[in-house]
Amino acid sequence: MLKLSLKQGQYVNIGDDIRVVYVGGSGNHARLLIDAPRELNIARSTTEENPARKRETYYAEPGISREAQQEIKRILWNERMKAEAKKDAESLKDKFNS
């Protein structure tokens, strides 16, 4: 058994396709996000003698396509370039107005 201490936002990968993210907590309660393949059943464990009766299953969101990932990267890059150009223009304006 592995015991870990995580800060908010930190995560643990289990194998290639399971990620457990610590999103916060207080006292004796912790909130976790678990991203796993849809075909993997994830059940919350309690003191219930018959765990099948108390099964709460999480299904991961389907991944986005490679094309969509590239489009998101392109959009973010363009927004960053616009922000830098605006900052540079303001810097030049301030320089000439001084």
Results as ranks from 00 to 15, higher is better:
85 A>W: 03
1 M>I: 04
62 P>M: 04
34 I>G: 00
90 E>W: 14
6 L>M: 09
13 N>G: 00
66 R>T: 13
42 I>F: 05
5 S>E: 12
8 Q>P: 00
24 G>W: 06
60 A>G: 15
24 G>P: 03
83 A>T: 07
69 Q>D: 05
13 N>Q: 09
33 L>T: 06
65 S>R: 08
16 D>N: 13
45 S>Y: 04
8 Q>K: 14
45 S>R: 06
9 G>T: 01
22 Y>D: 05
12 V>Y: 14
34 I>Y: 06
5 S>P: 00
45 S>E: 13
7 K>V: 01
31 R>N: 10
20 V>Q: 02
29 H>I: 08
28 N>S: 11
92 L>V: 07
95 K>E: 13
67 E>S: 11
45 S>F: 06
17 D>R: 03
69 Q>R: 15
80 R>D: 10
66 R>I: 13
89 A>K: 10
86 K>V: 05
59 Y>E: 09
61 E>F: 13
85 A>M: 11
58 Y>H: 07
64 I>P: 08
55 R>E: 04
25 G>L: 01
30 A>K: 03
72 I>G: 01
14 I>N: 02
20 V>G: 02
95 K>Q: 13
23 V>R: 03
34 I>K: 01
1 M>Y: 07
33 L>K: 11
77 W>N: 07
91 S>R: 13
10 Q>H: 10
46 T>C: 07
23 V>T: 12
1 M>T: 08
88 D>L: 15
9 G>C: 01
16 D>W: 00
4 L>M: 09
57 T>D: 15
89 A>N: 11
5 S>M: 10
15 G>D: 07
86 K>E: 15
26 S>R: 02
52 A>T: 11
43 A>F: 00
11 Y>I: 01
56 E>I: 15
47 T>A: 09
20 V>F: 08
94 D>E: 15
47 T>H: 06
29 H>L: 10
30 A>V: 06
4 L>W: 06
70 Q>F: 11
56 E>Y: 03
